[in-house]
Amino acid sequence: MSDDTLTHARPQALDLARQVLTIEAQAVSALAERLDERFLAAVELVLNCRGRVVVSGMGKSGHIARKIASTLASTGTPAFFVHPAEASHGDLGMITREDVVIALSNSGESPELLTIVPLIKRTGAKLISMTGRPQSTLAREADVHLDASVAREACPLGLAPTASTTAALALGDALAVALLDARGFGAEDFARSHPGGALGRRLLVRVSDVMRKDEALPRVRPEASLRDALLEMTKKGMGMTAVVDADDRVVGIYTDGDLRRSLDRGCDIHATRIAQVMTPSPRTIAPERLAAEAVERMQNHNIYSLLVVDGAGRLIGALSMHDLMRAGVV
């Protein structure tokens, strides 16, 4: 391809891309205006479902169906995808009378879906259809039909599913979010179904899961020398040491920053007691608090470590920003 051809194609490609986005945005906006009691009926059908939601579709509608099933499952509505062609060869046994089936087909005439519709209804399962043709066979056979029709496809040939698949996906998202809200599904519920993600770590990991404890925990008594405190800091490698009384209650902390200030004042590391140079009443956190809260406290107070104490103020752990980073909370 010549440079002249490329130069000519670039503005045309941008114009076409903008047209595609405009058409698809208009298709989704039109859906919002069409939502009515049928959408509410679909929500009620799923809320009253004692089994699972089974989502199915062929071709591009099948790809959208898989995404809708995944979104439903991750937002509190147990769901899975069944391929309609495979359903005719045994997978129909996955569907029970307690289930709700959501069938996607832009034409509403996909033969693979229409083949299994009578069998689905014979089991007693409820059927929600999502089509682009309200008068189609699939729409008529459904207990509830959701109209996902579009004025036109974004493909200039009018052939490739573009606006229609976007509309179906958006309608599926709308259903999932409406169900999420109706179930009172919250951020912690979401995190439990996404334990490997960043949100899961932020909402599930507790301070007790991350903190250093027992022999890994740096601590000295107030009467310890500055030299002893430095040895403890070096041995435990946290850049600080807690200062505790005879009952292990926290009375102070001594950090690398305190060390620099001590050296600036010319403190004798052998003669100086740690109680003379420590920071009293340090920031602390309880072990049952979220690790994300520990991050917030460190950032708000511009500190790099936190002491973990029990209800009586006794030292039971410590954590640094590096610990939180290793745990994936930051």
Rank of each mutant, 00 (worst) to 15 (best):
35 L>V: 11
164 S>E: 04
313 G>M: 00
241 T>S: 08
124 G>D: 02
32 A>F: 12
81 F>G: 05
46 V>T: 06
114 L>V: 02
151 A>G: 08
28 V>D: 01
162 T>L: 00
165 T>V: 03
237 G>L: 12
296 E>Y: 14
139 A>M: 00
140 R>E: 03
39 F>G: 03
132 G>W: 02
295 V>C: 11
122 R>S: 14
236 K>V: 12
10 R>E: 13
143 D>E: 05
231 L>Y: 14
305 S>A: 14
93 G>Q: 10
4 D>F: 14
200 G>A: 04
45 L>W: 10
215 E>S: 15
305 S>I: 11
208 S>Y: 10
24 E>V: 00
281 S>W: 15
260 R>Q: 04
273 R>D: 10
136 S>D: 01
221 R>G: 15
221 R>C: 13
209 D>G: 04
242 A>L: 10
136 S>I: 00
171 L>S: 00
66 R>C: 07
186 G>F: 07
174 A>T: 08
44 E>N: 14
133 R>G: 08
7 T>N: 13
218 P>I: 06
246 A>P: 13
255 T>N: 05
200 G>F: 06
100 V>G: 06
69 A>D: 03
43 V>T: 07
180 L>Q: 10
142 A>K: 00
214 D>K: 12
167 A>G: 09
243 V>I: 12
186 G>V: 09
171 L>I: 05
191 A>S: 04
265 R>W: 09
284 T>C: 07
302 N>T: 15
233 M>P: 06
88 S>E: 10
36 D>M: 10
59 G>D: 05
257 G>S: 11
163 A>E: 03
13 A>N: 09
314 R>I: 09
328 G>H: 02
56 S>R: 06
134 P>C: 10
229 A>Y: 05
264 D>N: 15
161 P>A: 06
198 A>Y: 11
47 L>P: 08
168 A>W: 01
142 A>T: 02
109 E>Q: 06
95 I>A: 05
288 E>K: 11
52 R>A: 11
263 L>F: 07
127 L>F: 00
260 R>A: 07
63 H>Q: 11
209 D>E: 11
287 P>N: 01
223 E>Q: 15
7 T>D: 12
138 L>A: 01
9 A>T: 12
26 Q>D: 14
294 A>C: 07
20 V>Y: 09
49 C>W: 01
58 M>P: 06
115 T>C: 13
286 A>Y: 08
238 M>W: 11
41 A>F: 06
270 H>T: 15
